[in-house]
Design a binder for these strands. Structure first.
Lengths: 150, 150
DNA sequence: GCCGTTCATTTGAAAGAATCAAAAGAAGGA
DNA sequence: TCCTTCTTTTGATTCTTTCAAATGAACGGC
């Protein structure tokens, strides 16, 4: 399991190499589909002084440069992932918000073309499968999901 | 163009027939893909005393009974529509948030089945096409889109 | 190796959508 | 018509995300 080279990724994107940025990248590697909050929590273990605002800034910069991608499932807070540009989609748990990756369902990128584009310049297609994750299927009645927000 | 029978829809769903509810249903008929705010604005023309909170309550009730459906595109506020259960998808404008309907791209509901469901009980598949709508393609540089939020 | 410009980070505040809670009011069956 | 139950209102509050000004650090030139 090869790790990412955070400094190189940052330099290639024309971003300065800073501790908070390295830490956010490494957090995203360890926590796919993490919320800004979760990233912040993970980053704080090593760099306790990094603010949540900084995490938002970094995530914004990373997504802006195409290093990370944000997923914004319905009323759940936004999630972030490093895996980018490989046309995969997501399974989202309606109850706890957990996300799993799904490789493109219909092959390459056929889903990228609606019959009638209504004059839109379509840039991207996003497929989201909604359902209950394994854990939530067994505990459908409990109050608060333990693994939400991670 | 036949109009909806709001009272009947409400009764069939086991909901009491009230003026605010009728008005919200009629607003949704006239404004497909309206935000809660837009629904409220439209409802206010006829019933100025209906609060935004009530609109949220009604929309919540309607979606809970399957009469309406909510669309929650990324960081745009949630939109609501009456058309339900016919497996269609959406084109969303990245800039102004305008939404257009697209009939299911691949036929019936094949998109409803990911290869590997990771133990999820999949209930629904949602396909969102992101792009620029016609209007925003021509005015890509202007500050604030006139038709946003409707 | 130091310095200065430019970019990052912090701090504190604020916006915006949506929800909660308690009290007052209407719907609809007996 | 009355009574119970469901709706609506009012007002406040939560939560995620963004804005802005001031401080601090990165890194390319000297």
């Amino acid at each position: 399991m090869r790790s990412i080279d955070a400094p190189a990724m940052l330099r290639e994107a024309g971003l300065r190499v800073t501790e908070p940025r390295r830490a956010v990248l490494e957090a995203l590697e360890g926590l796919p589909h993490a919320s800004a909050d979760a990233v912040h929590a993970r980053v704080s273990r090593r760099l306790p002084d990094v603010s949540l605002q900084t995490v938002y800034n970094v995530l914004h910069d990373l997504t802006g440069r195409g290093i990370a991608r944000s997923i914004e499932p319905g009323d759940h807070p936004a999630r972030y992932e490093l895996r980018v540009g490989d046309n995969h989609h997501h399974l989202v748990c309606t109850r706890c918000g957990v996300i799993a990756d799904v490789d493109c369902v219909v092959g390459q990128a056929p889903c990228l073309t609606p019959d009638d584009d209504h004059g839109f310049a379509v840039a991207e297609a996003e497929v989201t499968f909604w359902g209950l994750c394994g854990a939530c299927q067994s505990v459908e009645s409990l109050p608060s999901p333990a693994h939400a927000r991670l």
